[in-house]
Design a protein around this nucleic acid. Sequence first.
DNA 1: CATGAATGAGTGTTCATTCAT
DNA 2: CATGAATGAACACTCATTCAT
Lengths: 216, 216, 216, 216
Amino acid sequence: MNPSVSVPPKRERRKQDRPGELLDAALDLFVEKGFAATRVEEVAARAGVSKGTLFLYFPSKEDLFKAVVRASVVEPVHQGALEVANFKGTSGELLEWMMLQWWHRYGDTKASGISKLIISEASNFPELAQFYRAEVIEPGHALVRNALNRGIAQGEFHAVDVELALHSVMAPLLFLVMWKHSMGPCCPVSEQIQPEKFISQHAQLLVRGLTLSAPL
Amino acid sequence: MNPSVSVPPKRERRKQDRPGELLDAALDLFVEKGFAATRVEEVAARAGVSKGTLFLYFPSKEDLFKAVVRASVVEPVHQGALEVANFKGTSGELLEWMMLQWWHRYGDTKASGISKLIISEASNFPELAQFYRAEVIEPGHALVRNALNRGIAQGEFHAVDVELALHSVMAPLLFLVMWKHSMGPCCPVSEQIQPEKFISQHAQLLVRGLTLSAPL
Amino acid sequence: MNPSVSVPPKRERRKQDRPGELLDAALDLFVEKGFAATRVEEVAARAGVSKGTLFLYFPSKEDLFKAVVRASVVEPVHQGALEVANFKGTSGELLEWMMLQWWHRYGDTKASGISKLIISEASNFPELAQFYRAEVIEPGHALVRNALNRGIAQGEFHAVDVELALHSVMAPLLFLVMWKHSMGPCCPVSEQIQPEKFISQHAQLLVRGLTLSAPL
Amino acid sequence: MNPSVSVPPKRERRKQDRPGELLDAALDLFVEKGFAATRVEEVAARAGVSKGTLFLYFPSKEDLFKAVVRASVVEPVHQGALEVANFKGTSGELLEWMMLQWWHRYGDTKASGISKLIISEASNFPELAQFYRAEVIEPGHALVRNALNRGIAQGEFHAVDVELALHSVMAPLLFLVMWKHSMGPCCPVSEQIQPEKFISQHAQLLVRGLTLSAPL
DNA sequence: CATGAATGAGTGTTCATTCAT
DNA sequence: CATGAATGAACACTCATTCAT
């Protein structure tokens, strides 16, 4: 075998991965047990390192928490914005597509636990809540707002209050995420909600309600 | 009339209220900070008693938590059921009325913090989550399910998947409650959501989407 | 027996004593091992209480340290000032008397460990050093300064530089204290310094050196 | 000449100095913050090497501490002894000269921090205190003892208790050193002590007190 | 019953020491 | 030799819980 192809030294390779591994472990545990009930030692153990190592990368438990939120959150939003731009179809189709995308790219992902985390800990970490609102919620709302305004401007939708309709779009998505991270695991399989089906039906009801049809 | 007969002595009246005052204080704090981050001493202080006294009424912090959930929950549901029974109007009107009622009787109440609590702590207290599902969520769902089925049976609504449509009704309500107990306090007044307006608009969009109209 | 004469309840009596007992224990250990090398649990144990109890009275180890310094230091200085006022005798006799008093009232006391503590930790606790300078050193210096100035004004002493002569008086006292808390315990009994003898001889040499005698 | 022969490569020269640089850095920090409050990483950083390297030269923090004391100590004493031997002048002049020499060769030097260190840590490192007493204090005392005995034997001084008078000579010097390493840095410039002036005045007062003059 | 002083197990954080590279 | 990532024992501090008064 060619030595020049050999993997980088074990110690060094792992070092690069540490922060990510720790953030992953911390996300899982924070989501599952909340900030206060999660012990840093457990986070370290799940990441396969000792307690001391965690503090090599994050100066405190609180900083770890903030890093988890920031890391899990910033990316997905930007990607979403790009894809909306070149969507072809009616505004109604766009809305349903956006909702399903949100689910596949975020809601159905480990990162969606962040939403539950923020809900749970917002009053304990106000700056973090602000950050989340500015970096995640607002950009997301802007996307939905645009879609709704487009529909209204094109004569496809009624002239509803867009700022409120926004939440008619987002609330079911958040509900799915909250459910998944709280009651979901406690429910019998027979009662599990099927996310895509629910999103589709909700989107269709909503679009039908929004649509400016002749007889109304 | 002798006042000493009609008005119980202040001391005694307070004693009787102790558990209730403690539950009140605990609800506030658990909702605000979560279970783990709430100190029993703070609960006791807010209820105006000493730390020791709290343990006279609740054998442990966990028991206090369970009592908070159980106490905040039983009432509202039963009342709701009765009132729905004798509602006169279309199923669409019933749905909107139910949503607004839910908001006024629960969502706009301190007790709605329970919903946030359950979401936050469900994985730490699974048996409590089960209890809540059985005692609160299921009965609530039954009410909505009935209204939807009535609309379908009467030819007012499309034959949608009722189990999913359920959540189209509930999700916005839960969203309002979550928002109120997490991001809400961090938001500038200008961006506050107006609950009744939102509920009305959402209900109307939904009902319009559900309604079996001629041309569709 | 008359119950009205009975001792106060055990729990309560001890409570009053706690801070003092803790300060005593802390003084011993801080002097012996230094601030950093002293464990709070050891302080608590020596005071006969648990670790938690210490934090009931002092919010942190640092606060305990400051309290030790303040408590051990403020009193002796004030007492000293009063007694100097009504001393009858020559300024030379006054100086020797003051030095011996200082030794008996402070140097030969557990509290003198504070001097070593301050020397050791001054750079780690600058505010404390300032406090000590203002509250202890300066008042002490003022006493000595007055005695020297009196001697000079009355034609008993040479017109030496009083600010420097001050330290000729104090240095041997500080030396005794430092020695006692550092090398002293390591020395064979045969080499122990006899404080009173040393102070007397030093005072007499100094006074003789200061005294304005005819032939010089 | 070939420069590669005359000037050793920089890397190699530094290697040779490593232990010395580490001892220097350690002396500074131990004196400033005490043994326990000094972190080895800081010592290493100040010496310009990594933490691991320090442990290449000193097996433990304690060993580093002992090495610091031992290294800072041997030189000055021996030199002093020699110079005293061939001093010409009265015993009084000798005493003052010795005190000033001590100050210039040791007290005014970084090495004088050792005195503070020993005072502070003697009870934590008894064997080190013993070593210091035997190697430094005793030889120093011997020098002073000889000067005093010479003065008495020659009829220049009173027959005072030499073992005590010893400390009348040394105490002011130690005081200067202690002050410099503790309260000194906290004091306003206006209150700074001028060491040489103080030493001279103290020496003169002392010698005058010791001197066997006619009328007394 | 009510209190609040006392407890001690538990947690976040530090830091001397090791060792693979 | 030199490095610095990793370790884990040790420590300051918290807080649910107990119990003498």
